[in-house]
Design a protein around this nucleic acid. Structure first.
Lengths: 168, 168
DNA sequence: CTATATTTTCAATATATTTTGAAAATTCGA
DNA sequence: TCGAATTTTCAAAATATATTGAAAATATAG
């Protein structure tokens, strides 16, 4: 397989992959393109290579920058802005985990805290089922939260190495 | 907060949560409703409590059954079908992880295997960037795959306990 | 400061996804 | 086997999300 063909495959399947994870197709494709590009690209490069409009390109680049996955580069003597992606995949994963934890997991845990204190007699099976379900989700959620915190702080080498040994 | 109010909160926020994870709102709401219901429910119960149509209810129940999260119950003497959700949250998480791993992670790793063998001279920086990116994603993906496999096999008590100690 | 290149915004449009509801299929008791 | 109860299907409608493109805003060279 030739390089350009391989890049196209990578970009399109990274795009499809992203859609399963709440990231829109274009954002994932721009990210993929930058990940496999040796040099920084301009908006026009991306528009051309991905066949998307200027507005779409711009909005999704901004979003990638918000996620901390893409960075703006100013080349001296150049008027245009260039963009490049963080290539260290471990860092990429940690950024995504951190962001989603903040946006999704933490608010959910806060809600569960409140719901656990529902009024009513716990001997009533309806109350009991509700409280038990909420508590067990909370317990697992809290554990996930801690585990992800550690992962965010961990070095890749430490993490992978220990996991290797840990899990047989 | 009264039980019914708390249930409503739980259902609607579980629904919103689900949408961030590629699960549609209704499916997540039906799942939430079943999770906090002490007794099995019929389609009509769900239609009424969630204000959704018969077709929608039916399709999403089927999908939840495919995911192994909901099970059909036949009550003797009753013509209607009843449904109930797996209440053990650890099992729920493991089922979801297993399914998504199969549907998303594994195909991605297969593709990366192929893309790693792109033609061309690795001293060319364009080829090198591509191969390096693909390899590092693959490496991390393989590690995630193994870790998830272990998690799927693990007992909750073992898992949580060990993680507790393991992560400070 | 002015002219022009470049980036950003956002209303309109296009596309994708979800939901409805009624018809068709199925199930099961009598 | 018949017929009512129940479930399933799926085309059409509604809703939600993504994309475009042109106008407005901004930045920079001269």
């Amino acid at each position: 397989m030739k390089l350009n063909e391989a890049k196209q495959h990578f970009i399109s399947s990274w795009g499809a992959f992203g859609t399963h994870w709440g990231i829109n197709r274009t954002m994932a494709q721009i990210h993929a393109l930058l990940l496999v590009s040796a040099d920084p690209l301009t908006q026009d490069d991306m528009m051309e290579q991905l066949n998307i409009s200027r507005g779409n390109t711009n909005m999704n680049i901004r979003e990638l920058i918000n996620w901390g996955l893409v960075e703006r580069i100013l080349l001296s003597g150049e008027r245009k802005e260039y963009f490049t992606a963080e290539k260290d995949i471990w860092k990429v994963v940690k950024r995504i985990v951190k962001e989603r934890k903040k946006r999704e997991l933490e608010p959910m845990l806060q809600l569960l805290d409140k719901l656990e204190n529902v009024e009513g007699d716990k001997r009533d099976k309806h109350v009991k089922t509700f409280v038990d379900t909420v508590s067990s989700i909370k317990k697992l959620g809290k554990q996930a939260d801690k585990t992800l915190d550690m992962m965010i702080k961990a070095e890749e080498s430490w993490f992978v190495g220990t996991m290797m040994k840990f899990f047989k």
